[in-house]
Design a binder for these strands. Structure first.
Lengths: 278, 278
DNA sequence: CCAAAAGTGTTCAACCTACACCCATGC
DNA sequence: GCATGGGTGTAGGTTGAACACTTTTGG
C-alpha cells in the first residue's frame, strides 16, 4: 500500500511507464486520432460522426490528477479517447476504449457531457501539430469529426500501463488539476466540466471509494475531498459528517506511523457503495 | 391571462390545434422519422448516426405536461425530435427543430442525456407501426439509427401550432406526466430521466419562470413545485423559502377572485433569472 | 360573522461551524 | 513530558418541518 503520509510521500512516478505496442489490425481504433489506420475498415465498423473523450481522474500525493497525452509534434496535451463501433453501446465503447488503452476494467465511468460545437475541431494549434505528421487523412478527419461524448472515469491506482503509438503520443502523464498544461481542442473546457460534475457526484453518491485504496484513514479521506473541492475543510466537522452518513466501517486496526496517535482505518460499507446520498 | 383558479380552471384544450403544412424540400427534416424524404439530401446534409429527441414540458391546469406525438399507424406515442446538420452546433439543431416544428423561440433548452444503447431502435411495437407505412427506407432507417441526444425544453404556454405531416402523426397532445400512455422505443425512460433532471435543475437554478406567466401568485408557484416534484409541500414553509431566496419581486397589485383574501402577485427579479442557487 | 384562502409567527429538532479539549504515540 | 496529530464534546447559529395564529374577502 502506498504511504500517503503528508510529510514524506512515497513519490509515485508522475511519468507513466509507457509500454508501446505496435498498431495491430482491429484493436488500433481506440486512439483518438486515426493515424496509420485502414480508412475503409474505419468507415465500415465505426460511427463516423462520434468520438469519445475520457477524463481519467486519479488521486495520489494528496492531489487530484488527470491523465493527459502529449502529441509528439506539439508541446500541447490532449485527452485520451476513441471511437464507437456501429453495433456497440456508447457506455461499452467508453469502457472498451479504457480497457484497450490502459487495461482498465470495472472502474467507475460516467457520461457527463456532449461537446457539440461545430468549431471545436478547428483549433489551429492542433491543426499545425497534426499536419506535422504529414498525413493527408488527418486533414480529412479534422473536417469530418463533429461530436464528442465525454466520460469521466475514477481510477484508484496511478500505475497504468498505456498502449499508445509512440510515434504520435510521446508522453503520458498524470497532471494535477491545478496545474493543467496547454491543451488542444476544447479539452480544457471538457476537463473543467468534468471536475464540476465530479464535485456534484461526490456530494450525492458514494464514489470516493473508487479513488482510494480499500482501507484508508479519516485524514486521507478528508484530503481527497479537499483535493476535489479545492478548499480546506474543518477536520472535526468533516469527521462527524462522514461518520453520520453511516457509510463507513471502522476497522479495529490502526496504522503504524509517526509520533502521534494512530488513526483508525475505515472502509466503505460494501452495501453502501453505489448508494445515493441526500 | 389564463385563470388558474383551482376551482374553475378555464379549460385549455389538451388537444393541440394542428396546423399541418405540406412537406417541403429542406425544412422537412425536423421530424424524427424521415418519411417522404430525399435520402440523398439527408445523407449529404445531416449527421447520420445522430438524432435529437426533445422532452417539451409545459405547466397548466396545475399539472406538469409533456408533449407527445401519436403515430397514425399505432396507439403508441413518441417524443418529437429531429436531425443535426453537418455544420451545425448540437444546441442550435435542437433549437431549430423546435422552431421549425412549433414556432418556439428563445425558450429554455437543456441537454440532459444521451441514449446510446444499440437495442434502443429495435422496439418491435415501433417496427410494426412503422412498417404499416409500407416504406422500405424506414426499415433501413431503423437499422442505421444509433444515438439520440436528448434535450428538455420549458414552454410557458400550452397553445402551440405544430407543423407535422398528418399522414404520419395523427395526434399531438400535452399529457400529464402521471398519465403517460404507452410509448415507442425507449421514450418512457427518456421522459423519466428528463423529469429527474428537471427536478434537480428546479432546485439549483431560477427556471420556474419559464413555466409560468410573467406574474403569478405564491400558491400558483407552489402548485408548480408540487406538480414537478409530485408531492405536497407545506404552504407556510414554501412561502418563506421562496421569499428568503430573494429572487422574487412582490408587486403591489392583487388578484381579484373568490371570497377570500387576495394574494399578492410576484415576478422573478429580472436580474436573478438564469442565476444558480445554493 | 363565518368560511376560505393567503400571509405571518412560534416552536422544536437537526445540522453545521468553530473551537476547545482529550487521547495516543514516538522522541 | 511534550510536540504532533487523531478523536470527541460543546455552544451558537441556521435551516426546515409542523402547526397555530392573523388578515382579507365575499356571501
Amino acid at each position: 500500500m502506498i504511504n500517503r503520509s503528508s510529510k514524506n510521500p512515497l513519490g509515485v512516478t508522475l511519468l507513466i511507464q509507457m509500454n508501446p505496442i505496435p498498431m495491430a489490425t482491429t484493436d488500433t481504433y481506440y486512439f483518438p486520432i486515426p493515424v496509420n489506420v485502414d480508412e475503409k475498415m474505419m468507415q465500415q465498423h465505426f460511427l463516423s460522426d462520434l468520438s469519445i473523450n475520457s477524463v481519467l481522474f486519479s488521486y495520489h500525493e494528496e492531489r487530484l490528477h488527470v491523465l493527459l497525452l502529449r502529441l509528439a509534434t506539439s508541446d500541447h496535451f490532449m485527452l485520451p479517447g476513441g471511437f464507437v463501433k456501429k453495433e456497440e453501446d456508447l457506455d461499452d465503447a467508453a469502457m472498451r476504449n479504457l480497457k484497450e488503452m490502459a487495461g482498465l476494467d470495472q472502474i467507475y465511468l460516467e457520461q457527463f457531457y456532449v461537446a457539440g460545437q461545430t468549431g471545436r475541431a478547428y483549433d489551429p494549434m492542433a491543426r499545425d501539430a497534426l499536419n506535422k505528421f504529414g498525413l493527408k487523412k488527418i486533414e480529412k478527419w479534422l473536417s469530418d469529426r463533429k461530436i464528442s461524448i465525454c466520460y469521466y472515469a475514477l481510477v484508484n491506482s496511478p500505475e497504468l500501463q498505456l498502449k499508445v503509438n509512440e510515434a504520435i503520443i510521446s508522453e503520458a502523464r498524470w497532471v494535477p488539476v491545478e496545474e493543467l498544461p496547454p491543451l488542444l481542442f476544447d479539452h480544457k473546457m471538457i476537463i473543467d466540466k468534468a471536475i464540476g460534475r465530479l464535485q456534484l457526484d461526490m456530494d450525492r453518491k458514494v464514489i470516493s471509494t473508487y479513488l482510494l485504496n480499500e482501507t484508508f484513514t479519516m485524514p486521507e479521506l478528508q484530503k481527497l475531498y479537499e483535493a476535489v473541492y479545492q478548499q480546506k475543510l474543518t477536520r472535526s466537522n468533516f469527521q462527524r459528517r462522514m461518520l453520520n452518513l453511516n457509510i463507513l466501517d471502522r476497522l479495529g486496526k490502526r496504522n503504524d506511523g509517526g509520533s502521534h496517535r494512530a488513526p483508525y482505518l475505515y472502509r466503505f460499507k460494501p452495501s453502501k457503495i453505489e448508494m445515493n446520498l441526500n
